[in-house]
Amino acid sequence: MASKALPKDKIPQAVSILKKQYKVIGATPKGKNFVFKEIEDPNEVTLDYNTTILPLKKFFLPPREVIVEFNLQSKEYRGEDIKVEPKVFFGIHNYELQAVFRLDFAFKNGVSDETYLKKREKNVFIGVSYIPDDFHFSESVGIPTDLKEGFDIFLTRYDSHYRVEAMTEKGREIENAWEELLVPCDYEGDPVVHFKNKLKQSVAGIREIFHGAYNHPIWKETARKCYSCGTCNLVCPTCYCFDVSDEVILGTDKGVRARRWDSCQALVFTKVAGGDVFREKRYDRVRHRMSRKFAYIMDEKDRPFCVGCGRCVRQCTADINIVDVMNALL
């Protein structure tokens, strides 16, 4: 079967078709940057973006979410009902979806976290190819631009068209629904794309290198420049640490227990009642974040938690660059 292509100017129509059945989430501009949001107007979505400010995790692990509700009068704790609507994530870069898979692993490993996993049901992912900018380094962490793992449809950009590759049953349904928008595709294969930003060495073996690098001077050097502001944690697609607190709704008997994105870079993260702090030095915290990405947690296929999206570098006001730090170790 010859493949099909979606002309660039038909994208709004393609989105309109999706919207009949799904909530559609895609990237839209915000000032100089981009954000993922639910698409209201099919014209606002773009397939042409570098990265969004926040990753897709905000849809599955919102910045603040209720995990338990309680009632002071009836003395009850209960889980919140999570309604899941079918969603299409339209125009997603492959490292972004890989990051979602890493989170899936984290929330399934050991005990399953229903509050997260429920929101991962009924998701359809439509991928899009991208040209890495100065910050992306996904190839170095095992995610070359042509990796299409996990997508229902993958759109590969060439000229003013996107080649449509349906890879699942859901994907084929969508391709069929788009039928009248598609044109025959004269483009085969995947574009060869080079990353400017690279680790000196591929991820294999990095974990061992970390073991020997506990007292490497780079941690202190990096810490000297770091604010511990937490931006790198919040914007990272695979950071999922959270804080939990109870809130009573004033003047009622009701309340909620909510979780909120937390940052291991903040001093308070490991502080216990009585004042002991278990990662008191800033360099301990810098090392901890990067170790979590490359050595401490690995998914079931032994893949690191950094997907090379470059957000933590792009958005660090102190210009701390995880690639430079890694390269100092390698």
């Binding site: 929330f107 490993n109 050991g110 999922y240 939990v244 937390d262 993260f269 278990f278 947690i297």
Partner: peptide, 24 residues
């Protein structure tokens, strides 16, 4: 060992000592 704990189930990250979760 004692560490700060929030979730108790290996998710929230607070109790981590290097690569292990004290709560688990």
């Amino acid at each position: 060992l004692e560490r700060k704990m929030k979730c108790g189930v290996g998710k929230c990250g607070h109790c981590q000592i290097n690569n292990i979760y004290v709560c688990q």
